[in-house]
Amino acid sequence: MSNTKALSSITQKVIMSLMGIFLIMFLLVHLGINLFLLPLTENHREIFLASAEFMSTFPPMKIMEIGLFGGFIIHILYGVIVQLQNWKSRGSKSYAVASKTKATLASKTMIYSGILVFMFLAMHIYQFYFVKLGLNTGPMLEGTHHPDFYKMAIDLFTNDAIFSTIYILSFVVLYLHLSHAFQSAFQTLGWNHPKYTPIVKALGEIYAIVVPLGFISIPIYYMIWG
C-alpha cells in the first residue's frame, strides 16, 4: 500500500490540534462579548455594541479575523482528510460485533459532532457575518451602516423558538466535541505528564461545560424572560 499522505500522520494531527487550541481561545473571547447580551450591567447593550464595533473595525482584529477563518478552514479540512484516511485504514470489512471497548462517546464521534458544529457555524456566518458584508439583510444601527447585532440576537432569541432550540442543541454538541478536544490536543502535542495531565484534563472538562453553558444561558434567559 502506498503512502497517500502529503504530511506525516503526526504532523497532520499537530496542525489540527494547534488550530483547535486557537479556536478554543477564540470561543472564550466570543463568549466574553456575547454575555453582554444579558442584562449584566445597566449599559450592557452599549458594551456589547462597542465590543462588536471594536472587533470589526480595529485594524489588528482584521488580521486576527483572517487568521480565524484560516484556523477554521485548516481544522475542518484536516479533520475531514484524517477521517477519510482512517476509514480507508480500517478497511471495507467491519466487525460483526460492535466494539465493547470502553472508549468515550465523545472520542468516537468527533467527526460527527464536528460536522454538526460546522453546520451551525455556516448558519451563524450566514445570519450574522453576511449582514456585515452586505450579503444578507438585517437591522442597522441608527444613522450608520453598521449592523445592529444586539437587536438581531435579542429578536432571534425572543421570537424564534426554533432558532433558539437549534442554538442550544448546537452548543450541547459543541460540549461533546470540546470534552474530547481539549485534552486530546495536548496529548497530540506530546504534552502528557504525570503531574500536569490531570490538571489539563480537569481544565478541559471545566471549559467544555462552562463555555457552552455560558452561550446557552443567553437564549434560555430570553426565552423565559424575553
Binding site: 503512502n3 500522520s9 484524517v82 482512517n86 485504514s89 468515550t104 486530546s184 497530540t188
Partner: peptide
C-alpha cells in the same frame, strides 16, 4: 513513523 504511514495504518485520534 514514515514506514507506519506508508503501510496504510490510520491516524491517532486519542480514543
Amino acid at each position: 513513523v514514515a514506514r507506519m504511514d506508508e503501510l496504510g495504518f490510520g491516524n491517532c485520534t486519542n480514543t
